Computed example of a mutant assay.
Amino acid sequence: MSTKKVLVALSGGVDSSVAVHLLRQQGYEVEGIILEFSPVHKAAVQAAQVIADQLDVKLHVVECHKEFEQNVILPFCREYQAGRTPNPCIFCNPTTKFGIICQFAKEHGFDKIATGHYARVEHLEDGIAVLKKSACIERDQSYMLYRLTQEQLSMLILPLEGLEKTEVRQIARDLGLASADAPDSQEICWLPDGDYASFIEQKLGKSKSGDFISPDGTVCGKHKGLLHYTVGQRKRLGIALGYPVFIKEIDPELNRIYLARTGEEYADGVLLTNCVIQPNPLLSKDNPIAHANVKVRSRASDAPATITLLEDGTAKVIFDTPQRAPAPGQSCVIYDGITVLGGGYISKQLEL
């Protein structure tokens, strides 16, 4: 083994705790790091210190409130304000979490970093790092990592690949770790109550009310502000038309929300912006059209589709079978089997 010193992203959760233990078993010298993203995360730092003490590892605490605010919180708020549905973890991972941890590792003599994510990185002889799905498909988090750079992936070890969550918790129990029964982390880590709408309005001001537009094109009610809604939403609309409806489209320019009848949720395809394509033989600038699988949200099933990379950096994705309510702002991630080819942010739905 050429690499002996690994920096592990440690939290108070069970996954990163067990990652430390597994790396030690493999002969690595391990230290931990916890990023304090905001004042809310001070509790996470304390929980990580408890685990570090139990495992007898040195813990580095790095405060990065400014970076998190600029790279994650403000883009998250602005996306919702514009009628899109962002995923904050996808913003955070390349720009902040992995960016800061990789930089710290290089500056302090660590050759590799590790996290408790459920995914796999395969390191090829030509130096290319290939991101793949976890063997535990139910827990797979490759969707959240698709925007990592090649430099970040090349430094990354994922010790939990191949394990089920029940196995990870049992290892933690056997070790007597305080994290053994800790709940899984939440998506919006800086909002313990999950009330993102109130948070955004405190940050950017009150969201303006506007019109709901019925399937027949007429105004049928008032919405309370675009950030309270998402494409595909059916409940809590406050609209009674005598038949079920869902949100088909959110128009930030006119401040309107367009409704459609239930059953019309399906889109033929999507347009992607800010695409990231990992090195691969199937899809590239030289080979811009490919048939592969895509996921239009983190918990969606794989959907076969034809992907066309366009010269302006966008991509057109046409599904073999229409998919339900792909939401602008969410990511569409492209897979060749279990291998991540890349992806991008959904800009709009496409109809053939």
Rank of each mutant, 00 (worst) to 15 (best):
Q186L: 13
T166Y: 13
K112Q: 15
I346P: 06
S185F: 02
G176H: 08
E67K: 02
R256W: 06
T149K: 10
M1G: 12
H117D: 07
P281K: 14
V40H: 00
C64Y: 09
K203D: 07
G13M: 06
C77F: 14
E264I: 02
M1C: 15
K208Q: 10
G269F: 02
L259F: 05
V270Q: 02
G242C: 03
V276M: 10
Y243N: 14
D312M: 14
V57F: 05
F212W: 04
C136N: 13
D15N: 03
R169M: 04
T262N: 14
K248M: 11
Q81P: 00
N93K: 10
R169F: 02
L254P: 05
P86W: 01
Y28T: 05
R24Q: 07
V57T: 07
E107M: 14
D320V: 10
A300K: 08
A325V: 08
G313Q: 15
H117L: 07
I157R: 03
P244Q: 10
T262M: 12
P279Y: 04
Q170M: 02
V168E: 06
D268M: 05
E122P: 01
A43N: 11
D111G: 14
P322V: 10
F110I: 08
L156R: 07
C92I: 05
G32N: 09
A47E: 06
S154P: 01
R234D: 02
L204H: 00
S142D: 08
I128V: 12
S134I: 09
E29G: 11
K235H: 13
L177I: 12
V270F: 01
D140K: 09
I247M: 01
E69D: 03
S209F: 10
C332M: 13
E107I: 15
V30I: 11
C136G: 12
C102A: 13
K285I: 01
E107C: 14
L309Y: 01
R78A: 02
R297H: 10
E167L: 04
L204Q: 04
K222S: 08
F199D: 07
L237H: 07
G313T: 15
T95N: 13
S207R: 00
